[in-house]
Design a protein around this nucleic acid. Structure first.
Lengths: 338, 338
DNA sequence: GTGAAAGCGCTAACAT
DNA sequence: ATGTTAGCGCTTTCAC
């Protein structure tokens, strides 16, 4: 490694260029009120010394860091699994932050210890704003940040109340699930089961709520098994459902990944899809087009969620008031499984 | 959003607790030299005021941020593709950083503009150290960081020279590739082709070099097609190879993902694997066990690369000298495809 | 247009 | 054991 020589400061550049610190600061920050020759002299001194501004010092006075955190309260393993939710959010967020010339710092925190670190990191103002995605249970951190005046936006309605309420971007999960079930009812299905998502996540809760509410009108009873949004849990839950009600003829699955697992179980059990059992998923991830048969599913605009989170965050950072909730629509995509 | 009230400072806490700033600082930072009752008074003032330390101010004086960046010069889409390299690195890095209680900030930079931001972010000392993975071509940033005294470690030998040289962690790609080819030679294969990785990445270059060097001893000629480590590029390159030499009886593929694509092409072309054409991959990602037939491949310890990067980085940060290169071994895993 | 000076919020000698 | 003091490196009035 290099000998870490003393880092040149503004002061050093100023001395070398024969000007004041203030002038160097102006040049470095692109102020136009500096005379041409002086600008050039300063730039040369910067080059010769290899000067790089100290961002800690800068943000101590400006109160800005020009970077934004996206917190994923999940382990790296989960984030990089084949769940297409994370890539979608990250892509949407990246695109929009790119346009605003802000640095995205992505932070995963699957363990309690790492979550403490995240709290320190974010409350300490290392970033100008914080976005949360994939939250579990009641999480006090977003509320804490909002309270100390750090802009926050969540993806998905936060569970529990906080003062002030934390703004969020979500899709109409309840409506989407209800549509899916309606579709199955319209097709004349009699025994419609569901594989629900994890009930510590709002997406899991809402999709189940949509299922129940739509079923309530009809005289049908609900048949529920639980999964955790992974493919494997979908396979297991489907097995459970078949045991509970061998005569079921439809299943609404709260995620495509779980639906994929459920398809496998159905095939193994000798059920034809959709002839014997109709299947509807949720998310419209890429795999939904390649399953056998292709999956009827509820499309949600994941990338848009990411983009809208950023837009809301930037509005908040500029002191604008924003609505607490921004809800994006879902759309039923009918393919061959139902 | 909340009214962003004035943020309480150390000063405010000190006044409220009736002590000096220094004492508050001691309590906040867990110094033991503060009397019990005073500690309690300070903690209470902290609680009442909702005090949170300003990290910019702190790091301005301590010269530390307790966070480390991992830079992936790739788009989010690529990082979250099914290439298992990224998750492996991230997991290794996370594990090891967890143990050191440092915050990992993950930064993707697929475009030129975003790479400029990354340069500002890292040179500006927002982080105590920087790791690079998946570098393309000759990248000046690691050298720049090293020169201004910021600890840097790369995954994979950096292309081009820099002063001072940037330490790196790599696997023995050349040796691994050579072993793969030797295995094919030992099996009596006569016309051994290769699908090389992208030649702007050192992993691509080295694996090709290993292939060539091992082939040189035998009188066989080399047959090369290029891919970019994606599955699709492997399928295309395999098509190319079959056109170039319909009689080839073996192919060393520089990544399992490309090998997966190549298997598809071979099947479509009516070639049996390994009877007609033997295939060896590289990486030993999970999919290699599920291809048809399961893939003989070169295993590299990706997670270990991540862990070792962190270890090296922490050593450097503590002022220790480290070797420029840390090379981890590869291992040939023989399955049914060769 | 440029410089002087005041501070951003914190830590770390040094004094007591 | 606690307080006083001097910066860390920068931006930003305010004078000139």
């Amino acid at each position: 490694m290099t000998i870490a020589r003393e880092r040149p400061t503004l002061e050093a550049v100023a001395r070398r260029a024969g000007v004041s610190r203030a002038t160097v600061s102006r040049v470095v920050n692109g102020s136009t009120t500096v005379a041409g020759p002086i600008q050039e002299a300063v730039r040369q001194a910067v080059r010769e010394l290899g000067y790089v501004p100290n961002l800690a010092a800068r943000s101590l006075v400006t109160q800005r860091t020009d970077s934004i955190a996206l917190i994923l309260p999940e382990s790296a393993t989960r984030v990089f699994s084949d769940d297409q939710f994370f890539p979608g959010i990250v892509r949407g967020v990246s695109q929009e932050l790119e346009a605003a010339d802000k640095q995205l710092v992505l932070i995963m925190a699957g363990s309690a210890a790492s979550y403490d670190r995240v709290e320190r990191y974010t409350t300490g103002r290392h970033v100008d704003g914080v976005m949360f995605a994939s939250m579990h249970g009641v999480d006090p951190l977003p509320g804490t940040l909002a309270r100390i005046g750090i802009p926050v936006v969540c993806s998905g309605r936060p569970m529990g109340r906080s003062t002030p309420p934390v703004p969020y971007v979500d899709v109409d999960s309840v409506g989407g699930a209800a549509n899916a079930v309606r579709h199955l009812l319209d097709a004349g299905r009699q025994r419609i089961a569901t594989i629900a998502g994890p009930q510590d996540m709002v997406a899991g809760v809402d999709r189940l709520a949509g299922y129940r509410s739509e079923l309530k009108g009809s005289r049908r009873r609900s048949i529920v098994a639980n999964g955790d949004f992974t493919r494997e849990s979908g396979a297991v839950a489907m097995r459970q459902l078949l045991d509970d009600d061998p005569a079921l003829d439809a299943v609404f699955v709260a995620s495509d990944l779980m639906a994929h697992g459920a398809l496998r179980t159905l095939r193994e059990a000798g059920r034809r899809v959709p002839d014997d059992v109709a299947v509807v998923g949720f998310d419209d991830v890429e795999i939904a087009r390649y399953t056998d048969p292709p999956l009827t599913t509820v499309r949600q605009p994941i990338i848009e969620i990411g983009r809208e989170m950023v837009r809301q965050l930037l509005r908040i950072a500029q002191g604008e008031e924003v609505e607490e909730a921004l809800i994006l629509p879902t759309e039923l995509v009918i393919r061959q499984s139902a």
